[in-house]
Design a protein around this nucleic acid. Structure first.
Length: 185
DNA sequence: GCGTCGATGGCA
DNA sequence: GCCATCGACGCG
């Protein structure tokens, strides 16, 4: 399996969100390595997307979204959950892909069916914000032997986003049982 | 099975 | 005063 690099992450958020389904997330922490197949993502397509944090403009929090693709954007939500995103697209466009669910691979067992559960289980915190994902502590692998069955729905929890709330920007692998529960179209 | 609700903290 | 969430609880 080949490591995903800058050229892959630099795709626009929609193509990246779709392309990430079925890839393998690798997390090295505490001398151990954990692998999980990504089965659910959401695209946040730029500063015009009212559900995207980048639509608020450049702030201390959103700064990393405006940087180069392939870095981690990690933030705290509801006071207790960290969300793990990958910056997408051309630098300055404010795009990112939220990783919502994954399926453990190998001996390791965990419930990764939701963005908060995934980061908790993998030990991803805001200290990883801005981290280059072509490094060694968090990176991704292309798995050419796996063919996901991709479905597309509305994003979760963005009802405030006016004309953007119903955009079909959530992708998941219909073959997987690790997709987070909500499947509303 | 489904709706409602509270926890909890950074941010604008 | 919001939230890109989750799990517990009360239905009947």
């Amino acid at each position: 399996m080949k490591k995903l690099g800058h050229a892959f992450f630099r795709q626009d958020a929609i193509r990246l969100a779709r392309g990430l389904i079925g890839t393998v997330l690798v997390r090295r922490v505490g001398g151990k390595e954990y692998r999980a197949r990504i089965v659910e993502t959401e695209a946040y397509v730029g500063t015009h997307d009212l559900a995207s944090h980048s639509s608020k403009g450049r702030t201390k929090r959103t700064e990393v979204m405006f940087g180069p693709a392939g870095r981690a954007y990690v933030y705290l939500i509801y006071g207790m959950y960290e969300m793990f995103n990958i910056v997408a697209g051309r630098k300055g466009t404010g795009q990112a892909v939220l990783i919502r669910a994954a399926e453990p691979l190998g001996d390791w067992k965990a419930n990764l069916s939701g963005p908060g559960k995934l980061t908790r289980a993998l030990g991803i915190t805001s200290s990883a914000n801005g981290l280059d994902l072509s490094g060694s502590s968090i990176f991704l692998l292309h798995d050419p032997g796996y063919r996901p069955r991709i479905r597309r729905t509305r994003r979760v929890g963005v009802d405030y986003a006016k004309e953007w709330k119903d955009a079909l920007l959530r992708f998941f692998d219909d073959k997987s049982t690790s997709v987070s529960k909500r499947r509303a179209v």
